[in-house]
Design a protein around this nucleic acid. Sequence first.
DNA 1: GGGGTGGTTCGAAAATCTTCGTACCCCGGT
DNA 2: ACCGGGGTACGAAGATTTTCGAACCACCCC
Lengths: 113, 113
Amino acid sequence: MPVQMHHPSLDEVSLSDVFAALSDEHRRGVVVALAVDPTRELPCTALTVPGTKSTRSYHWKVLREAGLVVQRNTGTGMTLRLREPEFEHRFPGFLATLLHLETQPPTEPEAPR
Amino acid sequence: MPVQMHHPSLDEVSLSDVFAALSDEHRRGVVVALAVDPTRELPCTALTVPGTKSTRSYHWKVLREAGLVVQRNTGTGMTLRLREPEFEHRFPGFLATLLHLETQPPTEPEAPR
DNA sequence: GGGGTGGTTCGAAAATCTTCGTACCCCGGT
DNA sequence: ACCGGGGTACGAAGATTTTCGAACCACCCC
């Protein structure tokens, strides 16, 4: 029988967990990729996180334990799905702001002074 | 001649720096305290970060290097000031969302399932 | 001018995070 | 039934973060 992975309830996760998870560029990339996808779900193999299998698996775990994603087994392979509604309920506005910051023009030159 | 502390330009700081700085509960507390204050500025002694002098100093440094605060010498003592306008220009919406999340009701019970 | 207060910096020690290899599991195809 | 692809768990090594004490600095006040 399959090992039931632990997916915390959203009220078990703290803002600290979330910030720590998202302090990594690659993990942030995963969240953005999921958020941008209409289904909010992508196969792990499509995610652009560098490293070996175990390194990648470690990053999925960090995201999972921050309440950001659900891991789902799809026969062979696995997908990550953004827990958007629950996350939004727990941390309203967070994902929208992140998405906005990450998809924005890199940074405009400072206003002249 | 006082040691000029290094305050990075806002376009030298990355979202990773900011998230890492804010993954600590106490540092987040400082930012919120500053943001809530009408002047955006408070003496270090008023900030509620536990630990020895050097530990507290270390946390100011992390916040400084994430572009979140300016440290200013006030005769005796020192203040931290939130770099609100610059930060807002670089990461629009970020501070508002953080503030909203931190000053909100703790968390309402999840809808039944 | 000497002391006290409030700070910084520099190690060093402890804790935590990240990466990887290895062992193992499950599923699907041949 | 076996093999290969995709994944997890565990342990160890390496890197980074956090905390602290000690040394040192600047300012204010008596």
